[in-house]
Design a binder for these strands. Structure first.
Lengths: 214, 214
DNA sequence: TATATTATTATACAATGTGTATTTATCTAT
DNA sequence: ATAGATAAATACACATTGTATAATAATATA
């Protein structure tokens, strides 16, 4: 514990950070072993050797602990993924690779994924918009889109943030769909279709456009 | 109460249906007046003149009452909307009209919308997939896409259910985005951009149907 | 009418999350 | 180094949620 000495950090701040880390570690151990619902805040507090009320000082709800954990994983994953992106030839393959990486994790951690997505949506609604709300996957996707625009491959009349919306959301939805019934389809195959739809749109290109005004 | 006599319905079934309706009515009155969090299940039960436990027999969680209400509203709205769709010339205008209608309601009921979306996502995760999980807006969008495919306007190599995913999801996301900070943009303008993106895709084209926005 | 079935209820319970006040640890200025 | 300021940790009490159990009431069916 406290292996890293961060310069402008007093004892209090360091201990807080350590406690926070310990909570996440201890909580995730319990949750992975017993399931989310079967793990109480009491237990987590006990195991982390703090009072229950203190635990609530660090994380206002149980889901927030899971969210913190997923953010850390996601950031870590994004860092690794980012390096490999430039090796790939175009936007399509980059998108597929990035999503593929993310799903690998999702497939192994379905419960955690579901809890985290639900929590984030709820928070989005309640409007407490955090500035550090940017997850690892999101930053990866943003970079892919930026690269695509730079190369002239993607349309430039739409901002990165507008373009990221659909693809980011597709990701969430496909995951949810898959969580509902894991045997129904293969996550990756479905994702490939969605990426295609995102890139080329829903309009039929075989025939000339039929957009007539009257 | 009990104004409609449904043929094969005994006394018990009728009373159950009536109680259910009464709960939704009473609960929504309270929630609209006091807010969701300030309305307790105790209060709702009291007002509906049933025991708290009985209330839980009808709705397992408070959010489920709101969801039920939104479903009813949504179905009603969809019926009205559907009639006007055929008068419109193409998919683009139909999509915009349908979403426009839906947003009118959302703008008036932001809290309810947020609660309902959050609840549905959570349920999706937990995998209890209801067969009657199809909302009014979804059926409207499905019909629009079906019409578009029939006219050869939309690509036919993708199923309705696949095509509906992105547009349905866009809808949710734009709403969420708007809920976060209602002053930031106009719901309808943003939606128009998203519809374009859905139809024409993110790829840069030689003769592009450029997005028309400021 | 008698009986089986199902819904309602009272009661008790575990757990979540909050508010308040007290104690403890850390930081800062002298 | 010490005293006071500041912030965190804690104990305690509380309202609320949602569940489990068993007794009671209402309804359907024979």
């Amino acid at each position: 514990m406290g292996s890293k000495n961060i310069p402008g950090e007093g004892r209090a701040e360091r201990k807080k950070r350590e406690t926070r880390q310990k909570i996440v570690k201890v909580a995730m151990d319990l949750i992975q072993r017993q399931g989310f619902d079967n793990t109480t805040m009491e237990q987590i507090a006990e195991e982390a050797d703090i009072a229950r009320k203190t635990l609530y000082n660090y994380f206002p709800v149980k889901e927030a602990i899971v969210d913190q954990y997923v953010r850390e994983m996601s950031a870590e994953l994004a860092q690794k993924t980012l390096k490999n992106l430039l090796k790939l030839p175009d936007t399509r393959s980059r998108l597929l690779a990035a999503l593929d990486n993310a799903y690998e994790w999702v497939e192994v951690n379905p419960e955690i994924t579901g809890i985290c997505l639900g929590y984030r949506l709820k928070n989005t609604c309640n409007g407490s918009l955090n500035s550090d709300n940017f997850t690892g996957t999101q930053s990866t996707l943003a970079e892919i889109i930026r690269l695509g625009q730079e190369a002239g491959e993607l349309r430039q009349d739409a901002s990165v943030s507008l373009l990221i919306t659909p693809i980011e959301v597709f990701r969430g939805v496909v995951v949810l769909d898959w969580l509902k019934d894991r045997s129904r389809f293969e996550l990756r195959k479905e994702m490939a279709k969605i990426v295609d739809l995102f890139l080329y749109g829903a309009i039929n290109r075989e025939e000339p456009p039929k957009m007539k005004h009257d």
